[in-house]
Amino acid sequence: MLEIAGLEAGYGGFRALHGVALTVRAGEAVAVVGPNGAGKTTLMRVISGLLAPVAGRLAFEGADLAAVPPHRIVERGIAHVPENRRLFPRLSVEENLRMGAFAPASRPHFTERLEWVYSLFPRMRERRAQLAGTMSGGEQQMCAIGRALMSKPKLLLMDEPSAGLAPVIVDQVFDLVRRIRQEGFTVLIVEQNVRQVLELVDRAYVLEVGTIRRSGSAAALQADPAIREAYLGI
């Protein structure tokens, strides 16, 4: 579904990604893990068009993504839950969800999808009229995921959904991600919480200083001594 090869990207003269290759097949859940500053967010931003790559191949369902204007990426079926949630703080929860359905193809389905998101996250229904910026971190994360789901994406990108949340809430967020998996979504998730994310994905890539160092099935990585030492603290 998503195929990336030889990807180079950065900021000005600074290269944040060197020859990154990664694939996500339909129906899979794939994680990208790695330390702070490795380039995980940069990778997500390139996929969703916010950052233009310097070189490399970026294909989604066989079509070249680099040729698609950034605001058209969501129409292709890629939705991005950005790092730090990034809700519109002074819009209500429901208005945030409405923006998730902005693409012309999503608008006719707004009401039914809103119901669906509310049934996935009943808390959002309770908070529908509340300003998004006034909710707790965990609720904001729910809203951010719900907003991305409003476009019924073929591929859901999630950038550190558990970051900055209290441990109990982190567990809840991973439960949410598991539920989204069960709904049949293809997911590419970035996490620093390596132990928990490896529990719920099929495969993972380890990104360090802009380069893929390792990749494989979640089980194989969980068993890998180097990974256990560096990321699982065992």
Binding site: G49, R72, E75, R86, F88, M99, G100, F102, A103
Partner: peptide
Amino acid sequence: QDREVMILMGV
């Protein structure tokens, strides 16, 4: 409130 995320919404 967030110009970049607006693009992610398809705007």
